[in-house]
Amino acid sequence: MKSKSKSISVLIPDGESSFLQIVVNCLSLVKNIKIFVISSNKSDFMKYSFFVEEYIFFTDSSDEEWLNRINHEVEKNNIDIIIPIFQNGFKRIIKHQKLLKNKDKLCVLPALSDFNTANDKGLLYYHMKANSIPCPNSQVVKQNKLPNFSEIEYPVIVKPVENLGDGRGIQLFQDGEGLKNYYNCSKPAGKTIIQEFIRGYDIGCNVLCLNGDILTYTIQKGNLFSNKKFSAQIGLDIVEEDLIIDATRKLMKSINWSGIANIDLMFDEKDSKFKILEINPRFWMTTEASALAGINFPYLYCLTSLKIEFENPKVKFISFLTLHGLLKKIKNNPLFVFNINYIMNNTAFRFVLKDPIANFYKLICYRLLKYCKNYFKDSNQNKRVK
């Protein structure tokens, strides 16, 4: 086994993902980590982060060029471990890992067929039905095809089979007329899945696995959401629930999963069961919450991939607010701003203070883009009025 005291150099090859800051924030909690980033986003604010050793701008035109650049940076910077952070990066790495010169420096990963099953809601549904894993009744619809409307009980939710993130592309239909109009008129660009609408509450299970076995996990229950339908939690509680981890263990074992994943479930009030909706085969928006609760998934992923043993950390059952959640909380209760101890230990604001320059650039860029968007929107409206 390798020594855990040694400095670990991590290469993130898909740094253009919006999850970059979240993963870097988690790794910044560990002193002996050096982070290198390859990104196709030249102006990303994370290049100003205190915790990024080197931000490498590189626009690849092919998978081979991308893997060659990874090989170059691994040798140049003596990288210990390569860890993608978003599903596109994971899929490219898994599919083309034979092009890597140092495969031993690649994080533990599932087989391509297992990744595709996890990443495609249609394939996952068929897999769960075949393995008697609780899930919503569903119908998978191929592109340019119509569903079998006679077999559908309303209300239903329609989703793209591949996750777009933050609830994008998800629609709720209360009756057949709306669903028929959607498929006849909108003509979805890709395969979709129609799921029964479950009345209850949503809950998530985050895991780190090796060869189908769960090494560590956290379970989170949302307590605050944005106004946007089907969007990610902006406030949550870290909880424990044996029925959830039992169902998740069975699922991850059945696809022989290696690596990290976020599993979305719903508690169905109708039959009092937790049902698995989907797997996000990547890091998730509230990975920081797990880290503050004691389970630092990016760091433990590094240790697992480097074959460094670790004791399973004890989970702290905390509540957590994202920055969006914190702002909403203060808006609803202005006195909450004086709860300094909670804000510093249970929200993403602590990471803003740790990395002020990157967050300053993030704020400026966000404000500038918002201003430009509103400016051109107003200009177009004025032209139409004239």
Rank of each mutant, 00 (worst) to 15 (best):
F149D: 08
L99C: 02
A358E: 03
S150L: 07
C107K: 10
R199N: 13
N41A: 14
S231E: 04
H72S: 14
L224F: 00
P136H: 02
F349H: 03
A348D: 06
V156C: 14
A111N: 14
Q143L: 05
G235H: 09
T347I: 07
L277W: 00
I198P: 08
L303Y: 07
P160M: 08
K145E: 08
P313T: 04
I244G: 11
N148K: 14
N341H: 03
S113H: 14
P13R: 03
G122T: 09
V74C: 09
G122K: 04
A291I: 11
C302H: 01
H72P: 05
K180D: 03
S258G: 10
R69Q: 14
P334V: 04
V156Q: 12
K180N: 13
L208Y: 01
E309D: 13
K328S: 13
K228Q: 04
I318K: 08
L215F: 02
L112Q: 02
P155I: 08
C365E: 06
Y201P: 07
N345G: 13
K103Q: 14
D237C: 09
P155Q: 12
K253Y: 06
F336S: 09
K373T: 09
Q195H: 14
P84Q: 05
I12H: 08
N137T: 09
D202H: 07
L363W: 01
K98H: 13
D104I: 01
K105A: 05
K377E: 11
G165S: 04
M46E: 12
D114Y: 13
D14S: 13
K105D: 01
S231F: 09
L215T: 03
T216E: 06
K275C: 05
L67Q: 04
L321D: 04
S49E: 01
K129F: 00
D271A: 08
T322G: 15
W257P: 15
F376T: 12
A261H: 12
G178H: 12
G178R: 15
F149N: 05
D104Y: 02
K129A: 08
L123W: 02
N144T: 05
